[in-house]
Amino acid sequence: MAPTQSTIQIVPTGPGRHPKRVKSELMRQRLRAAGWFLVPMLVALAIVAGWPLLRTIYFSFTNASLTNLYGAEWAGFKNYLNWTVLKSGRVIWSGLLADPVWWNAVWNTIRFAVLSVTLETILGTVVALVLNAEFKGRGLVRAAILIPWAIPTVVSARMWSWMLNDQFGIINDLFMMLGLIDHKIAWTASGDTAMIAVLIVDVWKTTPFMALLILAGLQMIPRDIYEAAAIDGVHPIKTFWRVTLPLVRPALMVAVIFRLLDAMRIFDLIYVLTPNSSQTKTISVLARENLIDFDKFAYGSAQSTMLFLIIALMTILYIWLGKVRFDGGDR
């Protein structure tokens, strides 16, 4: 369907009017309204996001530090990549792109984002389908499911670090009781399990977000489609693949995009749970370290800017692969 075109096309068929003039008048009215509707939102975003964003990008090309923010001098691309040629002719590379710590963080971030969003999408769909079914106590279940999302991250991260504690954590106790593990595991201490711990907490926490957005999509699918499918005797699993999934796809795509953006920027959970583990140090955590803890504000700004570019790249790739619509055109 192509809403706008057909909307406007319908007008000329109206009786007793001059098709052409009416069309353009309506068009103009709609365009004017659209303009007025967009301006407040754009102004708000330009102020609240535009300025800080430009500042950060600017700082990434300077030698700014937090002790001397306003005396920053232009440094070009030095924070990104720089080289010095020694007398012996050896070239030494420095800057972000030559920093193994940075690449480790990039790898951690991508690994985390892909794994967590995949898991959350699958689980979120399952939960949404369950919630979309009619059963007793659905309201309570829906509320219960939102609880993980509702607890402030700062708190849930600490709560989980308590539960994942090796000596008095309930997870080890539970797993030992169930026979899943034979000795107490130091979840957040060991490099092998730190990422798993972070993933567990993140999936637990953000699946409700996915579920709710997908559920909203499911709710907007007209019931009669299912009724028709049921009458035709289509198997429910087939109905899911052929009917539900295609119809819920736009909502699903948006949910995944925003989760992906969020996952790529993951900060507070890791900052509380495993702040200094090199296995889980993501770009945002690394950027904070450089911006605030270390005296490298410019370098941290460069990292933030690069993160921005990486996210943009991934999003474009995702939109392109997922064929998300931008214009009002056909799917």
């Binding site: 964003l53 500042r55 504000f297």
Partner: peptide, 18 residues
Amino acid sequence: LAVSMFPQIAVLAGLFEL
């Protein structure tokens, strides 16, 4: 969409100035 891609920590200083 791009606006929401920037890490929070990175816009902190600029926002604080505003």
